[in-house]
């Protein structure tokens, strides 16, 4: 009888402990995308719904649906290129703000205003060598394009602009160190590190 009570007690303890245990969730199954066939009989490529990443290139997609295919391609390309411009601009602003904070100019309104201008100039100058990699037409006649820019092109254009920022705002010894950090941060940010 004692053995029986011992067994029941053991089962109860196991059950109680099991209730406390953290449940290991099964890894969420990858969402399987349905096969979508476009107007030209070509299946929808992955880049239409998924961001493509690479160490040396930055990719953006664009969509356009106009009265004819040619204009649709034009609009889709414009949208993709604008997304690339936005990405460069945002990346540059992020890095330059960090630099200004590190260099002790963060509260300087004039510096921040100038930074805004400089970062805009960098973004404008940086869009060189944009290539349309792929194109897909959906069943409704809407056109998707995938554009790319080599990250090296963006970095190359950032160099002289970074020097201009330093020249304009060098106030302390920390600025020199922050400048180096800014360049590293920019390179890393572009590579998605």
């Amino acid at each position: 009888m004692k053995r029986w009570y011992g067994f029941v007690l053991g089962v109860l303890i196991v059950l109680v402990l099991a209730g406390c245990a953290t449940k290991v969730e099964k890894a969420a199954a990858e969402v399987v995308q349905p096969l979508v066939i476009g107007a030209e009989g070509i299946p929808r490529p992955e880049w239409v719904y998924k961001t493509i990443t690479a160490q040396d290139m930055h990719y953006e997609s664009g969509y356009g649906k106009m009265s004819d295919k040619q204009t649709s391609i034009k609009r889709a390309t414009v949208e993709a290129k604008n997304k690339i411009a936005e990405w460069v601009s945002t990346s540059v602003k992020e890095v330059v703000v960090t630099y200004l904070n590190d260099a002790g100019s963060g509260d300087n309104r004039q510096a921040l205003d100038a930074m805004e201008v400089v970062s805009q100039q960098i973004a404008e100058a940086t869009l060189s060598g944009v290539t349309t990699e792929e194109l897909w037409v959906d069943a409704d006649g809407g056109v998707w394009v995938l554009c790319s820019i080599p990250i090296a092109n963006v970095e190359r254009n950032f160099e002289p602009a970074a020097e201009a920022v330093v020249e304009a705002f060098t106030e302390s010894e920390a600025a020199a160190a922050a400048n180096a950090k800014m360049k590293d941060a920019f390179a890393n940010l572009l590579k998605g590190i």
Partner: peptide, 19 residues
Amino acid sequence: FTAAQNLLDLKSEHVFSIE
């Protein structure tokens, strides 16, 4: 000329984009 424009869309040396 439209074909030439489309070649430019495929590879542009410089793009300036303001929104």
